[in-house]
Every structure is written in structure tokens, then in C-alpha cells.
Write a protein that binds this DNA or RNA. Sequence first.
RNA 1: GGAGGCGUAGCGAAGUUGGUUAUCGCGCCGGCCUGUCAAGCCGGAGAUCGCGGGUUCGAGGCCCGUCGCUUCCGCCA
Length: 594
Amino acid sequence: MEQMKRTVTCGGLTAKNEGQTIILNGWVHRNRDHGGVHFINLRDRYGETQIVVDENAPETLKKKADSLKFEYCVAMEGVVRLRPENMINPDMATGEVEVSVKEITVLNECLTLPFMIDEETDSNETARLKYRYLDLRSQGMQNRIILRNKVTYALREYLQKNDFLEIETPTLIKSTPEGARDFLVPSRLHAGRFFALPQSPQLYKQLLMVSGFDKYFQVARCYRDEDARGDRQLEFTQIDMEMSFVSRDDIFKITEGMMGHIFKESLGIDLPVEFERLTYDDAMNFYGSDKPDLRFGMAFKDFAPFVPASSFSVFKSVLEEGGAVKALVVPGAAADYSRKKISDLEETAKTYGAKGLAWMKVTADGLDGGVSKFYADQAEAICSGLEAKEGDLILLMGASWKVACNSLGAVRSRLGKDLSLIDESQFKFAWIIDFPLFEWNEEEQAWEPAHHMFSMPQEQFLETMESDPGPVKGDLYDLVLNGYELASGSIRVHDPELQQRIFNVVGFPKEVAEERFGFLLESFRYGAPPHGGIAAGLDRLVMIMAGKESIKEVIPFPKNNAGMSPMDESPATVDEDQLKDLHLDIVLPEEKSE
RNA sequence: GGAGGCGUAGCGAAGUUGGUUAUCGCGCCGGCCUGUCAAGCCGGAGAUCGCGGGUUCGAGGCCCGUCGCUUCCGCCA
């Protein structure tokens, strides 16, 4: 092997190398035998090079070239030469040159592939995950893993330059049952006790603030034992940050700077210096989502003013019950949207709890179709109020405020895709600010934290927090990008008294708080600085940058949506002895009878 | 936990209102070919149509059940 070690990579040859004798190591990407002349594309992660076996090559060499199959790992020695003028391949980085091969060594053969290794693998996901090491050979996966590396490199570079320290926090920690379900790790040394894997380094990064590490970050692996989705995995990576002596705007600034640096360094794209800001209320009222895709418009209009004068009773009772009636004007869609297509949209709305989706079309003479007869006499006022023009489709949603927003928001998102309103090349960031701190839980008949309990209420609500929790806004913020929640953070509570007041509002017993995170609360009594932070999903960020719709496309070895790995077949059963060590008995759920 | 979609050769797909030997492309095997770069041409092998049951003279297509995957809701920041 020693003498067939590569002297150059498959992406490294240009006209400048003409005449050099070189050795390449790589994989057989394509093999084209023309009888006389024979071409082999050799590939490694740096690129591809065309190898030529000339017609006057020795028979043994020709035979050897002929025996090479897809993905054989080979070493080739040869001479770099310029391709004939008319044979230059402009689509290939090394397209000016080719290597006239003198010796071929097969380093390892390859079985018949389960799928072809192309630009992108078009095989089913299970096969891709089972043979992930092959899937990762595709150009697309290689590019995305390389992009991911560029992103983590750039963010570390930026944060280090801004005096942040990268500090590791433990991944065997105490379970906190609030929020997502924890992954548990049984303790061998302490029978009946468990560690949890962190859902985030939240408590530890706050403790680091108490310790005086005033600018912290970590590329942190986090775990949540919840059902997976296209943009959610059991384990995922967060760009976790925390700062002391800062306000919300300081955190925005450093995050904007970091994103700017990441996009510039890894994609060559200039982002705006500051991102747009949108309150939670506006995001919900206008786009029906707390993570709106702002690459297209179609903001909702309020339809409530037109309800009382009409005899359409459904909307009337919605308003009487304190709900909302919202309108979505779809420009020029009246002709294209048949009853069938509108009822498809209605189905989308229904998955979000809506009971129906009303509609009407704007014609030259007023309103037509759907519920138009109830609003005929207000046609002019409605059209000017909603800024609707002839040929537009008006969709109307009446429901509780939240259902109306969410369901019409889902319809808007779908229309954005269906009508190709989205410029896929755009990256549209926005801050969503002023989230409510508390949410009313109808079932429990109690207030609960909208996010978590450690976020600071905004100053102007401090006095009325207990008497009227509903309107209390927190110093909470999300960063959204193209319709995805990319990052989430808050200014934290660092005052033990204020923290206790928040526990009281959500009915969180003092003893339980003491038992769960007493160590954090105690630390606040030792001169804890005011602090706040943010955590951004690295997988989601890279996914969006790569133009993909699943984070599995940017994670080297992801689980499938059932939370399993088809490659190693984990999770798996373990030996009795292991269970015994851990003091565990397995009780499987009973078989369904019948 | 719930809803929709999918399951046909190693991979990707087609398969009309149910009707002989289940079709196509890629890959695989054999042969031909002096410049291709998704090479081309000729030939060949390869499928109990996810599994189980039912309706029918006859099921890849219809019905019921079941399993798997997938998208979404719930859940989750």
C-alpha cells in the first residue's frame, strides 16, 4: 500500500499539473468501457477525476479496468495530461485534465449496491438509513455535512472573537419532568435512581452566569423523548448561548452578528445587519403563526366589522363567544379555485381544529359564491376594507382566536406553496417578541407557563402579574427563519423573590421547586447577575441553509421517525446481566386480547 | 393516542372500469463498441405485487384486518 498512497486528491488536478506522475486514491464512481478507450471517474470527497485507459495500454491493465465495479476502493497511478480541446468538460472542476493510468490497485471491492450513489439518493429512507455510510457518499450528503462543518466553524469563530467561552456542561443530569419527556439513564451505583439526558443545558448555563463566565456558548447535544418529525429528532444539536449584564437587544445583536457571519462564511450570503421584529400578537393576528414564513405576504384582515350587519349567524355567535373572524384575501385566485380546491383548503384548516372555511369571490358586480349572499349589501365596504379586487378569492375563518389564527395560518402556508409565492432563494429572518408569559389551561382550569418558568416578566406587568396573568408579556423571544422556529430565548429571572411569585401564579408548589431545582434557586442568593440567553437549533439552521425539509438530511446518522436506527437496530434489548446491574425489571405491556 | 398518503425485482416507478405469460428505467450477468463524461447498442437473469383473510369463474386493482414506512394533529421550544 505504501507505494500507492495518494499524492493528490480527486478534486485537486488542473492544467498546471500537466505532465506530472501522480497517485490517486478513491472510489470508482463511473466506469465507461468503449472497447478501445476506457474511462473511469474516480471520486473522493474533494471531487472527481477522469482516468483514461488508452487503446494501446497493456492487456492486463485493460482487463483490470474492466473488472472495476461501482464503489470499488482503488489506487491509481498515472500521468496528468490536458484533454483534447473539444473534450474538455466545463461541468467538471477537473474537466480540463485527465489521468492516463499506468497502474491500478484494487484496495477493496464492493458488493452490488442497494442504491446508486448519485448527486442525491432517491431511494427510500429506510434503505438510506440502513446503509447510511453509503448514502453519505452522495454528493448532496457530502455537501451538507461539509456545510454543517462550515457553520459550526463560523459560529465558533464569531463567538470566540466576541469574548465568548465554549464551556461543556454535563449530559448526565437530574430529571426535570416539566416540558418534554426526559431520556432516563438508570444508575448502577445507586439502585432505583436515574440520571436524565439534558433537554438543554438551561440550568447549567445559568449557573455558569452565577459563576461569572459572563459570555458562554456551547454546541450542545440535547435529547427529548418525544415523537419525531421532519424537523425534530430525539437527539439534536443546539447553539446554546447565555450572557450576563445584558438586555434583550444585546442578545439580538450578538445573534444577528453570528447569523450574519455564518451565512457570509458558509454560503457567501449577506444578511441584513438587523432582523425585522414582530410581536407575538401581530404574528398570530396577521400570519396565524408564531413562526410565520415572511417570504410572502397575504396578511390576514379582521372581518369582525362586517359580521354584525349580516344575517350569517355562525360568525355572529363566534364573536359573541369572544372568538375572532379573520379574512385571507388570495389575489387572483377566484378563477382557479373551484369548490373542490377550496374544500381541500378547508381540510387543512380542520386539522387545526377549525369547523369550516367560508369563502366568496370578488367579481365585477360584487361578491359571488360561498357565503356571499349574506354580505351582498356590504360588498363595497368589504372589498375596500380587505383591499380585495376583482378576481380575488376571500377566505373567512371564524373560531376562537387561537384556532382561527392557527387554522387560517395553515391555509396561508399551504397557499404559499401551492401558488408558488415563495422565493426559495431567500432567507427571511425575524424576531418574534413579547410572548405571553402565562397561558390559561382550559382543562386544568389553571395558569401555566407559556414557555418555561424562568423567563422575566416585562417590567410594566410586574404589579398586575398575580391579579391578571393573561396579558403579562415576558422578555421572551424567538428567532424565526422561513417559517421555522430557529432559536428561542429569554431574559431570565435572577431574583429569588420574583421567581417565587411566578411559581405562585402557575401553582408550582414551593417544596417541588425546592426539590427539582433548589440548587439553582439557592445560587441566585449568592450574587447572581442579571442574565439571559438564547439557543438556536443547529440542525434546523443547516437544513434551511441547504434548502431541505428534513433535518435528517443534515445529520450524519439520524434516527427514523419511529425513533429507531435501521442501521444498528437501536434501541435494542439488553442482557439480563446488564438489567440486573442496573436493578431493573422489564415489564412488557400485555398483549392485546380478543 | 388520532388523521391522511404509500407499500409491485436490489433501487425508482407504471399497471385503464377486476380478465391469459405483471410493464418500464436504473442496477446486476454476458457480448459488441477508439473519446465518453447519466456513454451507446444487443442479449439474459431477477417479483410468492408488505402479510393474513374475504368477495369473485377470475384480485396487483374491490372489502376487512394486520404490519411497516411517511406527512400532519396531539405531544414537543
